[in-house]
Amino acid sequence: MKRVAFMSALWAAIVLAALTFGASSLGLGEVFRLIGSQLPTAFQWADPVPESVRVIFFDIRLPRVLLAGLVGASLALAGTALQGLFRNPMASPYVLGISAGAALGAVVALIFRIDFAVPVLPAVPLAAFAGALAATLLVYSLARIKGRVPVATLLLAGIAMGSFLSAVVSMILVFSEESVANVLFWLMGGLSSADWTGLTLVVPYFVAGVGILIFSARELNALLLGEEASKHLGIDVERLKRRLLFATSLLTAAAVAVTGIIGFVGLIVPHIVRLIVGPDHRLLIPLAGLSGAILLTVMDTFARTVLTQEVPVGVISALLGGPFFIYLLRRHRAEIF
């Protein structure tokens, strides 16, 4: 519990720090004053901040920093659940093609401008969720041989599915008459279009996904013993698997609908956190979520400030994550082949 409190505090500190960086940099004092201006009068400081700064801060920077955290947490949590579910440290929504499925769903909704009359069910995250769920079920049933899911088959099925679905996305973009530059930037994992609308659209998916994972934490621990052994501990394994696959689809959809495909966060974060705190999901789930939020907030701040040209955070994360994945592959080679 102490560690969860510490990581929550660290995340809050990172958010405050990230809020000071940007095209027009703010002091920490200004950040506090801006936040205070939203609070009851008792907390307000003397001099008000100029209106232009207020707009930049509240309409652009704050939602972006919060969204980066939500996306990072979603991906890390989806990875944690998948690695536990498949008892395999190589699983992640990106490697298993689930992110590509969500991206295909979102692109279809964006390009064909699918919209529902019901305002509570916006099309893009819902389509991303449908795509993620379909990809998950396909990869899982492809990799399942006589009731077992061998590591190598699972990874191969996921990578094949991911490439295939990404190719379908490219085909749609090539033949679409829309200007695809924005879609491409989003697809590479850009957060530049972040706003409050985007945030409120995906928060329900995030909350539902996190809720299911916290609900299932102890069962995930038992599942590490193997499916049959966890049945003997009284766990309805088939129902647990369905529930977890549903939750990972929700979380992946939340992340992809906002920022396109960001690889590796879902792989690295659970792996590192597990190395540090061990495999108990009751600790792993909150800590991996917070670590993912911190990591992506830092990377996005880097992506939008350090270089002269803004780089999609997905590109940054792949630049860092690729070499790490190769390192993992080498470490686990004996188990896979």
């Binding site: 052994a229 061990g278 108990d280």
Partner: peptide, 27 residues
């Protein structure tokens, strides 16, 4: 139900290897 059964019956089968770093006590 599986839950009820697990309170009354325990089963030990041939253990496969465990890939996750639980301690003996945690398992």
């Amino acid at each position: 139900s599986r839950e009820q059964l697990a309170r009354r019956m325990a089963v030990v089968r041939q253990e496969g290897r465990l890939d996750f770093e639980f301690t003996v006590r945690e398992v």
